[in-house]
Write a protein that binds this DNA or RNA. Structure first.
Lengths: 231, 231
DNA sequence: CCTCCTACTAATGGATACGTTTCTATATTA
DNA sequence: TAATATAGAAACGTATCCATTAGTAGGAGG
């Protein structure tokens, strides 16, 4: 049977997807009435869906309708700083709370990423490489998700996921990450896993801080490059 | 002129207040239809208000209606841990971002609290003391709010305020804090202010950690005492 | 006496209707 | 020509309506 899903939930999911896919880039205007026609439902579920997106920080209210959240460069950095705070806390916590099953899964994901990374190095820069990147990305997301689960804090996890959502609005605008940066990230993943196994919260936290700081650097560089080209 | 406020915003505010005041303690059931009659508006704004409260984490959806969010003891600790993470990050950040004007205001609040604390010590335990406590509480809240402002991060501030709201659901269930604990908190406030003035992020962070750890201890102690009595 | 079934009540999700507010484009005046 | 006034269109906030669904009480059967 198909999953029973209310119209509100469905439109919420659809709009969210459209934002994350870049179909509705930052600054896009969202109006209740036209959207309800476009999506083929009445205004009620659209209204509710928009209210949820607003509370999630993905869109902002205007006097009339909503706008997909736009961040000024310094705000992008600010959001990333908050992410670092939360994800470091999660790494630190996970070092003590992760059970063996969870650690094993993280290790498996790390190894899988390792394999893909080797394939990417040999693949160079063509269509083959792009395909491998498409496999790497969700695994990376899964790696961080597994770490969150291991930290065993619904509160921290929830807050971090909120932040990640806001960040993802800008993902479609980003250029692809350089191979060297991915490789560095992978080395750091390995270090973090080691720290978790050693049950060393301080090391887990510090390594995560290093990891995210480099990711931040590269993302900001990508972003400014990209925005520069769009003018 | 009175502030123009839609029915949705008004009911949202009213319900939130009722929850914070303990008029709707954790576990209370909130149904759209009865509430709309009780509050004297149609279901539409009530619906929207409930949806917002849910997104804020104050109430949770059930198959039919909502319930004021209930936390198991270990979840209360978890929420507090998240608060510590965020508020330490804010203290650390504020040490570099706070401008002189903000620092001065925090110092003024600290001094004001100092005066009230002395008055409380001499007032003993009667109705006079209760009155002073009623003055201390909002100042304490203001002190922390001013610190958040000084950290100059809408993101961190927003996340922390979410957490604080969830915590406040349980405030009406708490017994009053002992004088000694308030006094300790005040000494720590002073230390934090000193660290901010010295522009020492590490000290600000560490002191805040110490401060919130003691607050956590006392709150948890209060809470278990209180819950114990309610059985 | 307990369990299961059925019929009823009441709440929800979604659509629609209506009055109000805001935006926009056109026309008028300085 | 530029600024402003004004009329019309469009979106919003709130109320109401209807179909569906989830609880509930009461009765039949074991």
């Amino acid at each position: 049977m198909t999953v029973r899903e209310g119209a509100t939930a469905e439109q919420h999911r659809r709009l969210r997807q459209m934002i994350m896919d870049g179909e509705l880039p930052p600054g896009s205007v969202l109006l209740e009435t036209p959207l309800s026609k476009q999506l083929g439902v009445s205004r009620t579920p659209v209204r509710e869906a928009l209210a949820r997106l607003a509370q999630e920080g993905l869109i902002t209210r205007r006097t009339r309708g909503y706008v997909v959240h736009e961040l000024r460069p310094e705000e992008i950095i600010e959001v990333f700083d908050a992410r670092i705070v939360l994800e470091c806390a999660i790494a630190e916590r996970a070092a003590t709370t992760a059970d063996d099953f969870q650690l094993t899964r993280i290790e498996q994901l790390t190894e899988e990423l390792e394999r893909l990374l080797h394939r990417l190095r040999t693949a160079g820069k063509g269509a083959r490489a792009a395909k491998i990147r498409d496999e790497i990305r969700p695994l990376n997301v899964a790696w961080h998700a597994e770490l969150r689960a291991a930290a065993n804090s619904k509160t921290l996890t929830g807050l971090l996921e909120q932040i990640l959502d806001v960040q993802r609005i800008y993902d479609p605008l980003m250029k692809q990450t350089e191979y060297e940066e991915i490789a560095l990230g992978q080395r750091q993943h390995n270090e973090i896993v080691t720290a978790l196994r050693k049950r060393d919260p301080q090391a887990a936290k510090d390594t995560m801080a290093a990891h995210l700081t480099t990711v931040r650097q590269s993302k900001i560089a990508e972003f400014t490059r990209t925005v520069h080209e769009r003018t």
